[in-house]
């Protein structure tokens, strides 16, 4: 408005005037916004820094292969917790992947706009927004109460509930991204619908599906609250009995975080380092898989 009112002397007003209130406000806001944006990253760097500083001194073969120490002990590792996390996550994957993937196939290919697909998608969204501890509460109700004991199996059930919606929604999206011209090509050659899905649709969407699966599994590996109510913890190695409590990295970190013994606290940091490294590795892998050069 100022510029307009100055009319005849317009050329002069084109010059950038740093003292101008508008220019100053603009610059100041930019600085503040970028400052806030950077500060949002500080916690991440702080966490990563602490993990390295406090977690890495304990890194050794013993850490990865020995049993968790009892109170006051000055040696021991997190081997049983690593194995336990792997076991429970595998168990959960075995239960949830068929459910999530077939549901995604139904949504992307068979459901169209059927009533069932509307309900399924709604259920997926509700499940994915549900607090993870409620999955634990449910698994407690059906597996722990019924079988009379905290167990690896119950832990698997709890994590499976959390994996299903993520896998289903990401896999559906990946399947929908397959160009319809490819589906047409297969159908035009006389593929049955199931043949088209298994031979063209799924292989083409595989990178996207794998990304979703890896992200879901890595998130499940870090879940603690549902395991607290289901798998609990164990100071021993997993011996093939799914009906008994089992150790996990996540619960180990929680248990040892409040420990009065320095060594156990240090183990919690080391376990955090291992857990975060695993989770980030999965995340990076997932991104690499997606970016696999497929065309040209």
């Amino acid at each position: 408005m100022e510029g307009l009112s100055q009319g005849p002397r317009a050329e002069a007003s084109f010059r950038l005037r740093l003292g101008d209130r508008r220019t100053f406000a603009d610059r100041a806001l930019t600085l503040i916004a970028i400052g806030l944006g950077v500060s949002a990253l500080l916690p991440l760097f702080s966490v990563l820094y602490m993990l390295v500083v406090r977690g890495s001194p304990l890194l050794s073969l013993e850490l990865l292969t020995e049993l968790t120490p009892g109170a006051g002990m000055e040696s021991g590792g997190i081997g049983n917790a690593i194995l336990g996390t792997v076991v429970v996550v595998m168990l959960a994957a075995g239960m949830s992947l068929p459910l999530g993937l077939f549901a995604a196939i139904y949504l992307a290919e068979y459901g169209e706009d059927s009533g069932l697909s509307v309900v399924v998608r709604f259920a997926g969204k509700v499940l994915s927004g549900m607090p993870s501890i409620l999955a634990g509460v449910f698994a407690y109700a059906i597996a722990v109460s019924a079988l009379g004991s905290f167990s690896a199996f119950a832990g698997g059930v709890a994590l499976a509930i959390l994996i299903v919606p993520t896998v289903m929604l990401t896999a559906e999206e990946a399947l929908r991204l397959v160009p319809s011209k490819m589906k047409q090509a297969a159908l035009g050659m006389g593929a049955t619908r199931a043949q088209m899905v298994t031979k063209v649709l799924i292989p083409t969407a595989m990178p996207g599906i794998l990304t979703g699966v890896m992200l879901a599994l890595s998130r499940a590996a870090g879940e603690t609250a549902p395991l607290l109510l289901t798998a609990l913890f164990s100071d021993y190695w997993f011996d093939g009995k799914l009906g008994e409590p089992i150790a996990s990295l996540a619960v180990l970190i929680y248990n040892f975080s409040g420990s009065p013994f320095e060594y156990q606290v240090n183990l919690a940091w080391a376990a955090s380092l291992v857990l975060v490294a695993l989770v980030l590795l999965f995340n990076v892998l997932a991104q690499v898989v997606t970016r696999r050069p497929e065309e040209h």
Partner: peptide, 19 residues
């Protein structure tokens, strides 16, 4: 294949209903 997909999709709804 069709019935498996349909059945397991319904399974997701049952899961939520179960919880």
């Amino acid at each position: 294949f069709r019935w498996t997909a349909c059945g397991l999709a319904a399974g997701v709804v049952l899961l939520l209903a179960g919880v």
